[in-house]
Design a protein around this nucleic acid. Structure first.
Length: 186
DNA sequence: ACGAGGATGCTCT
DNA sequence: GAGCATCCTCGTC
């Protein structure tokens, strides 16, 4: 699988195909890897729920960047949430990473999360477990330090994928642009 | 098991 | 000044 080609496609096509892929960080020599199981597609001018619905701003600029750009924003003043930009450069679209299964570095994730369960089953939790913050917004998942990798997935998607409405939004609630898969087995 | 409510900061109107 | 692409804790059942 060629990640550059994949990320260049439309968010609605990219999102389900990210399921099963790995996000890897290695801060302070502590490697953490999460296999994605839940994502959401966000587009631009045609998506009222998107941060880019009203065009480019300082915050959402990474959404207009080249495919593979990280867009990290602060949620409710407390959490960080991470997206991977897709589609052609100049067109706002991204995939929000909402959940995954810890694969490597569980002790590190437990320390970052301050608990031993529910490490990455939510967008704020997943981002915290990986140690990703706003300072990583604008970096490329093809160049690090936050990496998207095919990992050990042999198929994409790795299992049945269900499309549902997106979570926690107040507009365009009905669009089934959230994609969930069963936990990929080892 | 489930629901209500609070924390908290930044972006855009 | 309003509104969040959330998470956690503490009540009640």
């Amino acid at each position: 699988m060629d990640l550059t080609d994949l990320l260049g496609a439309d968010a609605l096509e990219v999102a389900p195909r990210l399921l099963g892929l790995h996000i890897r960080t290695a801060f302070d020599a502590e490697t953490t890897v999460i296999a994605l199981t839940e994502v959401e597609a966000y587009r631009g001018a045609d998506d009222p729920a998107s941060h880019a619905f009203r065009g480019r701003t300082l915050r959402n600029t990474p959404m207009f960047g080249p495919p593979g750009t990280l867009y990290v924003y602060r949620s409710y003043g407390i959490h960080w949430c991470m997206n991977i930009t897709c589609g052609p450069e100049g067109v706002a679209s991204a995939v929000l990473l909402r959940g995954g299964v810890p694969r490597t570095g569980v002790p590190t994730m437990e320390r970052r999360r301050g608990r031993t369960h529910a490490l990455s089953n939510g967008p704020g939790k997943l981002t915290q477990a990986l140690g990703v913050t706003g300072e990583h917004s604008g970096t490329s998942v093809l160049e690090g330090p936050v990496w998207l990798e095919v990992g050990d997935s042999t198929r994409t998607p790795p299992g049945p994928v269900v499309a549902t409405p997106r979570i926690g939004i107040s507009r365009a609630k009905e669009l089934p642009w959230r994609f969930v898969t069963t936990v990929p087995s080892n």
